[in-house]
Structures are given as C-alpha cells and as structure tokens.
Design a protein around this nucleic acid. Structure first.
Lengths: 195, 195, 195, 195
DNA sequence: GAGTAACCGAGACGGTACGTCGCGTCTTCTG
DNA sequence: CAGAAGACGCGACGTACCGTCTCGGTTACTC
C-alpha cells in the first residue's frame, strides 16, 4: 500500500464524507454509525474513506474538528476583569452546548472513540484540546496577575477541577447538568484558588 | 417469550460466562469483544447469554460487578481522624488500580458501555456507584463533624471535585496518573472545603 | 472452521439457492453471476452458500446436477437394433438441447467452471459424465454383440469421436450445429467402427 | 471519445503489456488475472490498456497471438507421403504442447475467453484457427490426391474428428493425454476416411 | 418412577457491515 | 498529446458477528 498522494485528494469527497458523518451521527448515534452508510450518504466509494482515514473514529474526529476549525484563532475567553463572573458565563455555555442533541451526539461519539483509541486521543489533545486549554489557562493567568488567583496555583490542575466534574456528569449522566451547577462548581473551585 | 425461570438457571454457566468475559476484555479490549467469542470461551450456547443478559454491555457490567461484590458490605474508607491523609491514601490506591491492565481494561469497557447506554448507566449508579459514593460521603461527613470541612459544604460536589479530574485523566489519557497527582488533587480540593 | 453438520442443513435454503442460480445464470449469464445476487434472490444469507459450496462453480454445478437427477436411473439410450438410426436420434437430440438458451447457458457456465477447476472437473466426471457415458457405452456394446461394431473397438474412443466434435462446435461456436451435422458425424464415426 | 491514433501508439508499452499478460497467466491462472496486475507488471498506466484493447480477453488473445505470429506463414504440415505417419507426428506434437504448463495456461485462458465471448471467438477463428485449419486441410487434400483418403470425404469434419477428441480431453481433463492416445486417434479416424 | 417441561450445548439460519480487490473512468503531471 | 500514475464511484468478494431459530441431551419438578 503506497501512501496516497494528498495533493490529488478530492476536496469534494472529503467534505461530503464529513458532512454525511455529522448528519448520520446525530440521526442514528455513534453505535449505529457505519462506514458503509457514510459512504452511501456521501455518494463516495468506501475505499475513498479507507484511503484517507484510519478508522471510523478518525472520521468522526475530523467531522467534528472541521466544525471547530471554522472559528479557528478566535479561541479566546471573555475577560471582564471578574474571573468568577467570566468563568460562570463560560461554564454555563458549556452546559448549554451539552443540552443540544445536535452537538451532544457527535461529541459523545468522539469521546467514546478517544477513550478506546490512544492514538486518536493523542491527536485529539494536540489538535483540539490543547489550543482550547491554552485559551482557558490564558484567562486564569490574567486573573492571577490581577491577584484574583494565588500566584503559585497549578493552572492545569485548576482547569481539571473546573471542567472534569462537568465532563463526568455529562458523559456518565450521573446527575443533571444545570446552570446552577456550573455556578456552584466555579464558586467551589475558586475558593481553592484564591490567595 | 415466557420469562425464563431464574430458579433453573445454571450457576456453572453464569460463572463461566462472567469469567470468559473478564478474560476476553483484557485480551482483546472492549471493541474486540463479541458475544460469539464469550460463548465459545465459556463453553456455553449463545442463547444462554441472550436469555440472561439484555446486551453485551450488561454482561460486561455483571462481569465486573461480580468482582466487586466479593468485598460487599465492607465498602468503608479508612478513618484515622486526618481527612487529608485518609483521602490521599484512597486516591493513591485508585491511581494504582488504574495502572493495572487487568483492572483497567474491564473498567474502561464498562465505562464505554455506560456512556452509550443510559439504561445501563442508571443501573450502574444504583448498584455500583451509589454504595461506594455513600461510603465516601460518610468519610467526608465524619470530617465535617470533626471540623475539618465546612459545615455547609456540598458533599456531592466535593466528591466530584476529588474524583472527576482523576477519572478524566484516566479515561482520556490526557496526562499521566501519579501518586503525586493524587496528593495535589486532595490538597487543592480540601482548600476549597475547609472552614 | 469445524466442518458443518449436514444433518442440520436446511433443505429449503438448498433448493432456493439452486433455483435462484438456475434463474440467474440464464438471465445474466455466467460471467454476470454473483454469489451476492444468488443469496439475495434465494432469500438466503451469503454464509449459507459459503458454508455448503466451495465456489461459485460448485453452486452452478449442483444447480445443473439437481436438474439431471430428477431423471435418475432412467439414463438409457434407445435400442431399436439399428445403431446408426439410434445414434442419430440421440445426437440430434443433443443438438436440439444446445439450441435452447435455457439449457445452453447453464451448461456453458458449468463447462467453463470445470475447465478452470480440476477438482470440480473430477466431481463432474464422477457424478454426471460417468453414468451418462456408461449408458452410451452400453448401447455401443449392444451393437457390438449384434455385429454392427467391430469386436475389438475401443468404446471410450468411439464415444469421444461421436461427441467431441459436437462439443467443440458448440463450445467455441466454430460452426453451426445442425441435425444434418449430427447425421454426418454418426455416419463417419460408424465407418471407423464397423467390422 | 475520438478514436486513438494508432500511429502514435507506443510499441514499447504494447509489448510490455503482452509480455506481462503471458507471465501472469502462467503464474496466477486465467481466473486470477487482472488488468490492474498487468498494468503494474508492465509498468504501464491502466488507461493505456483500456485505450487499445476492448477487454481482458482481447489482451490475452493478443498475447497468445503475438507468440504464434512469430512463425507466421510457415504454417505447413510435414508431408512424407504417408498420411498416417505424418498425422501421428503432428498430433503427438500437440499432445506434447499441452503437457507444457507455459503453453497450456495461456491457451486455456484463451479458450475460456473465446467460449464466453462470441465476438472474440469470431476473431479467433479468422486470425488464428482458420490459417492453421487450412494448412491441416491442405495436408489431407494431398493425401486425398494420393488415394489415401476417400475422394468424397468431408475434410472439415475429418479435422474435427482428429482434433476435437484431443481438445476435449485436454480442456475437461477427462482422461490423460498420451502419445499412444494420439496414435490410436489417428488410426481410428483414418479408418473412416480411407477409400 | 414416568412424564414433561425447562434449560443447556451446539450451531445453522437470514442478515448487516466489515475491509479488500478489481473494475472502468477521470484527472494530473511528465517526456 | 500519448503515456505513467493513481484517485475516484462502484460492486462483489469472503469473513465476522449479530440476534433468532431449531436441534438432541440432560436435569429437576409434577403426577
């Protein structure tokens, strides 16, 4: 299998596959998703998918990535000077996103794939998570300089404290995700971070 | 389809299925697991599996549940009077468990199943998570009475702050799980909970 | 792959496959025949075909064999006492069969398959050709005893002289197959065989 | 699709394709032969094949034709004056050819192709079979004039009687092809042809 | 103790999707 | 502009499992 030549790749097919994947994942869920169906919906040969993606997970990954990359560069968090208020806005937004099935389904699919494919997980971190996390840490750093967060705080850990509980509730559906929950989360975490 | 009579259920088959499932999930991973293979390995007819379990996830679920239920009732956390020390011991133990592939693989399988099957998720919470969480909260409540944790702290949220970051790192392999990480986590969270 | 148990074979499926094969081979020709189409037409899973037949050729083989086996045991040639007249009747009948597309197409398919699969060829000789050839030789032997054919004639070769030219014309379409041709063939061959 | 200009055709590519076809047909058999593989082996684009040949069969046809055309014009049978001896030499030579896999495989491929493609069969008769048959008939005619064969014998039929049994044995592998068989065949057929 | 109804193992069945191969067409670049 | 290279839509391949459905053959409960 000589590596295919990316220069000759059909852009039309690539986009059709990503669009079909997004549509299908919301329609039939991740478990019900098949390469066969994606190819059929996209009007594309199966081989074209296998030529450019390693696995079903990789397709889903790119399908979602393609969405995010529209807003590329613009990954900045609000900064009103009030870290608590700003974080609440951001986390409430995240909660809202998770409430929308059209967003929720593909992202759940992506997370399942990442959880069972370390290679995909690495790419996910590099291309999706890292930039977003960097933006979030930038906001925390700004709060640090404003004296709202301790100078010696571990920002990576801070990020996890803020987002992991929300992530866990969503993924395992262990408890409802409400705006109030987002607020409480921010308040608790900030208590640990304040000087 | 008259409901099968649990009284006539073959204990030997039940155990063989659960054992085979545990073996296979560590050998081939969750994605590579099949009812067909479980039945063959267990020396059991496929129908026997379909008769007693609703889905592959349910089998995996029971296979892991069967392990935990050996230590049933004994779900108690250490209580030396020092909440910080006790939590560090417990979280370090969790980190160690996740490092062992024989434990890690089936639990990952279980989590993937739960994440994509709400019904299973509910049963998981009721039969596995709830008792364990209750034990953990009991320890926190004891610390509350000892004045080491604020009286108005939300213990459910406290639990999430303690475990979700660890869970997320493990599931997504976003960063290494070390004993030092467990310690840092406990310290940060306790800062948010202290009076 | 443990050999399947013929006792549990579904007769309904077997017949459906053979019937579908016969239909399709006349409709789309042998080259256009696919296991996929046979399975679909027969309302049968592909695996069921692969379980019981080694190859597409083997299915075609059985499909045609099934037809011939209806008239089993009755493989006898006419014997009016006049070998020349009898042979002409038989060869003219063969010519007529080859003129009927419904007969011709599957038999051509079978021959192509036999020509490229020695294993199938062996089974063909044993199950189809041998009994028929034996019947033909029986008629020649009877003529021998009647003094119409030399006592030391090689009946196997005689059979080939009678049928191979006809076979070749048909298979390669090298010249038209007419009743007159059949007659001429018989006359020539008998000249070589008479005392 | 304007017809390609034969004047600009690459002789190098043409020969490479024919050589590759001959090699592959002996290596993998006719069923296992693919345009894709021929193009790869010949170091030629697939389009080049599709441009100059109508089908896989046509390529095989030309590949074998190219061999025979080396000896073109020289298609003459030995004529010692003894028709029986001469025919035995020729048929024994044919038997020997069929025993050599390097000859046998492509010729079998060609015959399968001809049997399933009437158009190709016609071209085969015109370009390959007819000249050879003419040469054979020339020898028989010579024997006729020498009084070794009846004046009113049908030479076309005579040819079939001589070659078809041999052809059938070879194609269907219905019995071994030996020099003795060739001799017996000649003797029987001549008995039918003699005055 | 005989009858009988369930579970049991085994595995054939109609299906769906897999990942691969080859088809014949189309596109891009090179000599 | 023929030719090499090879991506493309497509269709079939032969395989793996799905969940359902018979098959005998043990059990274990009823009369």
């Amino acid at each position: 299998m000589p590596a295919p030549d990316p220069a000759r790749r059909s852009e039309r097919s690539r986009l059709a596959v990503l669009r079909a994947t997004r549509e299908l994942v919301t329609e039939v869920g991740y478990a019900g998703l098949s390469i066969e169906a994606i190819a059929a919906r996209a009007g594309v040969g199966k081989q074209t998918i296998y030529r450019w993606w390693r696995s079903k997970g990789a397709v889903v990954f790119d399908a979602i990535l393609a969405l995010s990359e529209g807003s590329e560069g613009a990954v900045t968090l609000p900064d009103t000077g009030d870290i608590e208020a700003d974080l609440k806005v951001v986390l409430r937004a995240t909660v809202a996103e998770f409430a929308d099935p059209a967003f929720e389904a593909p992202i759940r699919a992506l997370n399942l794939e990442i959880a069972s494919d370390p290679e995909l997980a690495a790419e996910y971190r590099k291309r999706l998570a890292a930039p977003v996390d960097e933006a979030k840490k930038a906001r925390l750093r700004s709060a640090q300089q404003a004296g709202q967060i301790r100078a010696d705080a571990d920002l990576d850990l801070a990020l996890e404290l803020l987002y992991a509980p929300l992530y866990q509730r969503w993924l395992l559906r262990s408890a409802p995700l409400t705006p109030e929950y987002a607020d409480a989360l921010v308040e608790h975490v900030l208590r640990a971070l304040r000087p």
